[in-house]
Amino acid sequence: MNHQIDRQLVERAALLSRLELSESEIAQFSTQLSAIVEYIEKINTLHTEHVEPLAHCLPVHNVLRADEPRGSLSNAEALANAPDTIDGYFKVPKILDDNSGA
């Protein structure tokens, strides 16, 4: 795989991760990430056809809780760290597009 992280890839990753990078950051990340990805490429020299991906080392499943209330925060506690609020809501600049995913 081509491991050159060009400007376009950096800009795409920055957009996806909502980072408004400066020109110099884009240039710097392009160089640094290229070097890192080139190094990471070594994993693709290993043959892993018959190897299961290991997302988790802990051999557990079905960790489920009973459907019982555990209490909530007060409105004041919930908003205590909020940069901006209005009438008990979190306040943000007007959302113009409907981009909800659910």
Binding site: A13, E25, F29
Partner: peptide, 27 residues
């Protein structure tokens, strides 16, 4: 605007190593 709340806050709030790793992981 609200998109900039994300992109500017994150660009200004995170240091270079954190941004580098977020970028790498997103990629």
């Amino acid at each position: 605007n609200y998109i900039e709340v994300y992109s500017k806050s994150r660009d200004e709030g995170f240091g270079p190593e954190v941004k580098r790793r977020i970028m790498l992981g997103t990629f």
